[in-house]
Structure formats: C-alpha cells, structure tokens
Design a protein around this nucleic acid. Sequence first.
DNA 1: AAGCTGGCTTGAATCGTTTCACTTTGTCGT
DNA 2: ACGACAAAGTGAAACGATTCAAGCCAGCTT
Lengths: 343, 343
Amino acid sequence: MNSRPVSIKDVADHAQVAVGTVSNVLNHPSRVAERTRARVTAAIAELGFVRNDAARQLRAGQSRTIGLIVLDIGNPFFSSLARAAEDYAAERGSTVVLGDSGHDAGREARYIDVFEQQRVQGLLISPVGDLTARLEALHSRAVPVVLVDRKDDLKLFSSVSVDDEAGGYLAVRHLLDGGRRRIAFVGAGASIQQVADRMAGARRAVGECPDATLEFVLAEAMTVLAGRAAGERVVQAGPARMPDGIFCANDLLAIGVMQAVLLIGGLKVPEDLALIGYDDIDFAESAVVPLSTIRRPTELMGRTAVELLLGEIDDTQSERRQVVFQPELVVRGSTGSRITAQI
Amino acid sequence: MNSRPVSIKDVADHAQVAVGTVSNVLNHPSRVAERTRARVTAAIAELGFVRNDAARQLRAGQSRTIGLIVLDIGNPFFSSLARAAEDYAAERGSTVVLGDSGHDAGREARYIDVFEQQRVQGLLISPVGDLTARLEALHSRAVPVVLVDRKDDLKLFSSVSVDDEAGGYLAVRHLLDGGRRRIAFVGAGASIQQVADRMAGARRAVGECPDATLEFVLAEAMTVLAGRAAGERVVQAGPARMPDGIFCANDLLAIGVMQAVLLIGGLKVPEDLALIGYDDIDFAESAVVPLSTIRRPTELMGRTAVELLLGEIDDTQSERRQVVFQPELVVRGSTGSRITAQI
DNA sequence: AAGCTGGCTTGAATCGTTTCACTTTGTCGT
DNA sequence: ACGACAAAGTGAAACGATTCAAGCCAGCTT
C-alpha cells in the first residue's frame, strides 16, 4: 500500500533465485525447471509484481505496441477499422493504441511524436491533409509506417486504400441505371483526396451517358449537419435546377441531405429524388428510407494494414506494397428505380 | 538511413558538450547558456534525434500518458467523451491513449496489463461488468484510477457518472405527461448497472401514476439490430398487449425499435406509439421521426474524469470523489403528445 | 592579489530489465 | 570410477535518459 513499486529484484529475493532466473520465467519459461518456475510465479503473485515496460523496452530496443492514428474515431469507418486492427494485432501478439487526430494537424503531430518517443513497432496512420515532412522524417528514421485509406504516390510507404474512383463510378452508374439524368454530387472540398476520387468516378460515369449532367454541391464538412445544410440549398434552388439523383461523398452527408429533402423540400425518396451515400455505416440501413451506399471492406482493411506493418517490422527491407480494395454497391430503398416507383 | 537510432550521447558528441547539457536543453533550457543551447538544438535537428521515452521514464519513474479504456469506441457517447478527455489532457500536458474493450473482459484485462506495464500516470476506465479483482489490484498498487460512467459503492475509486435513475424517471415521466399509460422498457440484461438504474427510474415514474403499467422487454444487446428484433416482438404481440409508450435504454435500441414499429408494425410514431431513447447521439436527431431522448453531458464528463485523475496524481492522498451529473430531457418528434397528434 | 560569487558545464551514478558467458549440478556410458 | 555432456541457475554488463555533486572560470569585492 506504500513504498516503491515491486521490481524483479524483489521477486528474485523473495523466491530465492537470481534476477536472471525471474527474467527467464517471464520470457523463456521452458529454460526454467518446473519447481523453480512455480516458486517464482508464486512470488510474483504474492508481491503483485508488474513488469516495468520502460526498462524492458530500453534493454530490448523494441516495444510490442502499434500506434494507430485516425482522422475521426467517431466515424464508424474508423472505429470499425480500429477494432479489426486491434483484434488482428492481438492475434499476432501486439497491442494497438489509438490516437484520434480529429482532422487536426497539430493533434496528429502530437500523436506522432508521442508514439515515436514510445518507440512503437510501427505506425498506422490516415494522415490529415498531405503527407507531411513529419511523416517523411519517420521514414528516414526507419520507423515502419502504413498509410490507411490513402495511397502514397511516392511509394515511400505501404498503404491500404479503396479504389474510390471506382466507388464513385459504381454509385453514379447505379443512379443512371435507375433512369436518373440530372445528377448532383455533394461533398466537402475537393482538396480531400477521397472526395476528389469519388467525384472523378462520378464524372466518368456521367461521361458515358450523353444526356446526363453532373453538378457539384459543396458541403462544409462530412457530417449530417453539413449534409442537411447542403440539402436545403439544393431543394430551395427550385424545381428547374433540381437534380433527380444525388450522390453524397459519405453516408453522414447523405443522411443529412435526406432529412432536408424529406422535411424541408417535402419531396419523396426515391420517387422524386434518388439518393446514394458512401461507407455503409450501420445507420445507412436505419435511415428514414434505407440508404443505398458503397461499402468498403473495413475489417479487411484494418487487418491488412496490420499485416503489412508486421511484415515490414519483420523484414525492414521488404518492398512497399500499395493494396487497393474494390468497393461494393449496396442497393437499398433510397435508389428504388423511378419507373418502378411510378407504377 | 541505417544503423542504430540516435542517442543523446550522439547529440552530445556532435555538439561538443556533455550528455548532461543535452538533457538540460531538453528539460531545463533556462539552465543552459544561449549559445550552447543553439548549438545543441542544431545538433538535435541535424541528427534527427528523438528522445527515448522508455529511458526517460525508467529514470523519471513516471510517464506523461493517461490510459482510457472504453466499452465500445463505436458508441458516440464514448467517442465524444474520449475526444473531450484528450483535449483537456493535452491542455494539462498529458496524452490520452485509447483502448477499446468491446465489452470483452479479456480485452479489458489485456489493456489494463499493457497500461500498467507502461506505467501510465493513471487510468480512466468504464469497466466491463463488475469491478474485477484486477481493478482492485490496481488500487493496491496505488495506480490512480477514475471510473467512467459507473459509480463505485466501495469508494475505492473516484468516478464520474450520470444519475441514470433520474434519467429513467425523466423519460417515463415525459411519456406519462404525454398521456401514455401502457409503458414498455426495452433494454439488455438488467445485470448491466446502467440499464438497471434506468429501469428503476422508469418504475418510480410509473409508480406515481396509478393507472399506468410497465412491461420489460429484453433485448440481446444495445444495438440497432437488437432493437429491431425487440421491436418486432412487441408489435407482433398483438394490439391487446401493445404498449403506447416505449422507453429504450439507449438511442441505438430506440432507432431499431422505431424501424420495426414503422416498417413491420405499420404503426405511426408518435400517434400510435411514443418512443424515447437515451444518450442523444447525433443520429437521434436524424431518425425517421426525430427521437426524443435523454442527454448526458458527455464532454463535461470526459473533462471532469481527467481532472479528477490529475488531482489524484498530484496528491495521492486526496480523497475519492463520486461526481454525479444530472441528465437532461430532449424533446423531439417521437414523443409528440397523443392529444395533439389526434387533432 | 587573494578570495568570493554565481553562472555554466561536466560526467558518474542510477532506474529495472534482458542477455549471455560462465558455474554448478546431475546423468549416462564405458 | 571417470569424463563428457546437458540442464539449470547465476550475476555482471548494457540499454539511454535524468540527476546532482563537483569543477571551472570570469568578474567582482576587499
């Protein structure tokens, strides 16, 4: 209940063995005779000994911890990915500790510093904005890094990402197949790579259909609230300029747009307006009208990210790999075909 | 690009000073003359030196890290609380690292072990199930612990929690005030303390109203899916046994119940059935019918938890405090009064 | 000129663990 | 009975930072 914490030395004294033996019990139990091992184990339990990871790391030079920095842990895409990463890392004997940058470069920088000082085995990160000098510094110090949900064109780092251009194409192609022609794309600034890619896919799909048009609607952020605001602007623009199909850069936006369209615009989904999102978060299914969307293989991405990272840890020379997953169309009520709906 | 990492010794050699001086530049810059400091700073930048936190901790005996273990980081209550905790901790010069137990005692135990081995300054935890022997072990080793969203009747630990009994009372009182009399409570096993408290509050409210009845409906989990399943059972039980007001132990359940009621039961909310949830997650507002709910002061809880913890770190003798916040009723469309609705 | 003061700097000791070369003990074959 | 050999256990060195008593030196007082 007082004094200083119990050290391996205390355990050794208590069990009447040398410190090296206690260490062996902890790290190489097979090297220690059964009777001795039992005595040491008992001493550990009795004294409530807890290994000092700082000392262990200092000597061993490496931790068993992986740092994961996400853009927004409140976003189901990231929380699901994080969960999968943790599970797989645990299988492989490592622990994932999580940092939430909240799209803030300063917080990201703080977490990078903290994790690097802790000498994590490696870093999984979905970076805020462009790849910073800070990340390249990590590379030059040989800290394994795997980018999540972002490709690295310079090929300094491995990455797991999704072909968002294909996802955008899938989404808009689906709207066109349902007979929609006046398409709108709602997304936050195109400076965000993912948004730009989805937009590019949308453009390609529209380009394949001569009588279709594409309009860009800017949202302030990728949230339900921002979606609602964007949706209001769309419905208030008047019938002449009203789209008949909207593709949102993520499900949160789509749910916001849907609210505005139904409650403020007084329109029907999908009869008057088809709506499709991106991500397939849990709530997509539970929206007013179940939301069609594009699904990314979240668990697989989390798992793969850890796999790549551990690969680079085992073999620092291993080549960088850019793994790109294909997204998948999930059809629900919000894009019911216009023709069917009119019967 | 190769060899072993840069140590403080390397920096000292490069700047032509002693190791102690480099350490002083890092920790007590005022003790070092300006010229020397500049030379050392330059050497640090040039060599890309990163402080080894393991060594620092080993010597200093303490880290600048707080561990936070939550039940489910996908739950907006926790992600919002975590964000607030991180922000406030950063203000106070500490870093929060996050672990997600996923309601799994094994994972919780792993994170407790990892954090204790890392000698975190202290632990914020919303424990899975009952307070385990493991937590009491922490107490006996003088690791500061603050319980989140859970009181400790033994007063071993400080805690921040919400008066869930009052929340349950508020919710059901509101249903009764709207003219509802056949109340149902949907929640996962009452073995969960929070669920039991909310149920108790519901019971108290119903007790105050002679002609009201309360029925308990068991859900498998606290998710949208489990809510939908529970909702289906309710509506399929037939009109005679149908409640006219439902209080769900959280918003996710409520959203699931709402889906079942609307889509499978073909009923109207709030006309046929009033519905109220708990938590006020972002999506409560964006449900088919905007969901009435009980709001907990999440940010304040996260901040307060860190505050209590840092208090105990500064003064180990400080007494344990049980901070209980009062929840707040948020009225939206899902509990529109029956009378109004029938006009 | 000697003594003193205070600001800077030095470098050895220290934290708790792992590692490893070495010693001790016990077994077996001949 | 002897040497060889394996298994078990020992304890000092090392990891990289912080701390602190001690040393140095320039400038000042007497």
